[in-house]
Amino acid sequence: MTSIATEDEEVTVEVRDASPAHYLLKIESFSLLSESGIDKFESNEFVAAGYKW
Rank of each mutant, 00 (worst) to 15 (best):
H22Q: 14
V47L: 03
S31F: 02
S34Q: 12
M1L: 06
F46C: 00
S19D: 15
A48M: 10
H22K: 12
F30D: 00
L25W: 04
V11K: 10
D39V: 09
L24D: 15
S31K: 08
K52E: 05
E7W: 05
K40E: 09
L25Q: 05
S36A: 14
K26I: 11
P20E: 05
S3N: 10
G37K: 00
Y23Q: 03
A48V: 13
M1F: 04
A49P: 04
S36F: 00
A5Y: 04
E42C: 02
S29R: 10
S34G: 07
H22F: 13
K26S: 13
T2G: 09
S43D: 07
N44C: 09
I27A: 08
E9M: 11
I4T: 15
E7M: 07
G37C: 02
N44K: 15
A21N: 04
E42F: 03
A48E: 05
T2Q: 14
Y23M: 05
D17I: 03
V11D: 07
K52C: 01
N44D: 15
E45Y: 08
E14C: 06
S34I: 03
D17F: 03
L24E: 15
V11G: 03
L24Y: 12
K26N: 14
V47P: 00
V15D: 07
E9H: 11
P20Q: 03
R16E: 12
V15C: 04
E45V: 09
A48H: 10
V15M: 09
V11E: 11
S19C: 15
A21T: 12
S31L: 03
G37D: 03
S34K: 10
S34D: 10
M1G: 14
Y23H: 10
E42P: 00
S29L: 02
A5V: 15
L32D: 12
Y51D: 11
L32R: 08
F46W: 05
R16Q: 13
T6Q: 08
G50I: 04
E10L: 09
E45P: 08
V11M: 10
S29P: 00
M1R: 14
K26H: 14
T6L: 02
S3Y: 06
A49V: 06
E35Y: 05
L33R: 01
M1C: 07
A21H: 04
E42V: 10
A49D: 13
S29A: 06
E9P: 00
H22W: 07
I38E: 02
E28R: 06
D17A: 07
F30K: 04
S19A: 15
E7Q: 13
E10D: 04
F41A: 08
D17P: 01
L24W: 05
L24R: 14
R16A: 09
A18L: 12
E9D: 08
T2S: 14
T2D: 13
K52L: 07
L33K: 01
L25F: 11
F46P: 02
P20L: 00
W53C: 09
T6I: 01
D39Y: 04
T6K: 07
K52F: 04
